[in-house]
């Protein structure tokens, strides 16, 4: 990351001056003077110190299963921690506590998962070995791919266009894994979202924006890198 000499570190901005200006600026004022027109950056520096999260919707066992799923879906590696540390179970619990439809999807799905694990391995999901857990998830991913291919084809022939509601899925071809496919899709999308919207995930992916600058520049090193790898080498 070169060439960012024009960066104004957010910490350098005098927040009090900004807040004062904004307090003076009534709704009707609209604009603020340039000299003080720096931003209120809400909690940009660091994640707020979190107290212990109080689980709202799920049982202790359900919440633990969500945590294990978070560790498997976005695992820790040499770059960053897992989705568990990034708060995925808390995210799913909070939204489920606000939405009966979502709660139903997760209560039902988690129960289905344990029932299926018991049928296969005579163990609940969290008590199974990692190999058994990933076998289960691999089966769901495989069934999901088959199902998705079919849905994509079908979508093309439906003129309706926008499709927003996952609960309208038909899972006819997924066989006995049908309910699991639907649940895993929800669990994965929300776990992945929780991870990449957390400070851990944002750092992992390498997003370096959301700042205030006096000038915009594109680093020459990045231009050279991409040009060399493109068809426009010259």
């Amino acid at each position: 990351m070169s060439n960012l000499s024009n960066l104004v570190p957010l910490e350098a901005l005098d927040r009090r001056a900004v807040l004062k200006q904004i307090a003076l600026g009534a709704a009707a004022a609209g604009t603020v003077e340039m000299a003080e027109a720096q931003h209120v950056h809400e909690a940009t520096a660091a994640e707020k110190a979190k107290g212990a999260y109080k689980v709202k919707e799920f049982t202790a066992a359900e919440f633990k299963t969500l945590g294990r799923l978070a560790q498997l879906i976005v695992p820790a590696d040499d770059v960053s921690a897992s989705a568990l540390e990034a708060g995925a179970p808390e995210f799913i619990d909070l939204l489920s506590s606000q939405n009966a439809k979502l709660a139903e999807i997760f209560h039902g799905g988690l129960a289905w998962l344990d029932a299926e694990m018991n049928r296969r391995y005579e163990k609940s999901f969290v008590n199974a070995t990692e190999k058994q857990q990933t076998e289960m998830l691999d089966a769901l991913v495989a069934a999901d791919k088959v199902e998705r291919t079919r849905l994509t084809e079908e979508a093309g022939y439906r003129k309706s266009g926008r499709y927003n509601d996952f609960t309208n899925y038909t899972v006819a071809r997924a066989g006995s894994l049908g309910p699991g496919v639907k649940f895993f899709d929800w669990c994965r999308r929300m776990t992945v979202d929780a991870f990449y919207t957390s400070p851990i995930g944002i750092k992992d992916i390498g997003f370096v924006g959301n700042g205030a600058y006096t000038k915009y520049e594109t680093p020459q090193a990045a231009i050279d890198y991409a040009m060399k790898r493109s068809p426009f080498k010259a």
Binding site: P75, R189, D204, I205, F207
Partner: peptide
């Protein structure tokens, strides 16, 4: 800036786990 839904494509393409995380990056 990562947001809700930003990495759904990678998740669906690569399933889950270490490989998915690497591919998203």
């Amino acid at each position: 800036m990562p947001g809700i839904g930003s990495f759904q494509g990678a998740a669906r393409r690569y399933g889950y786990g270490a490989e998915m995380k690497k591919q998203a990056r």
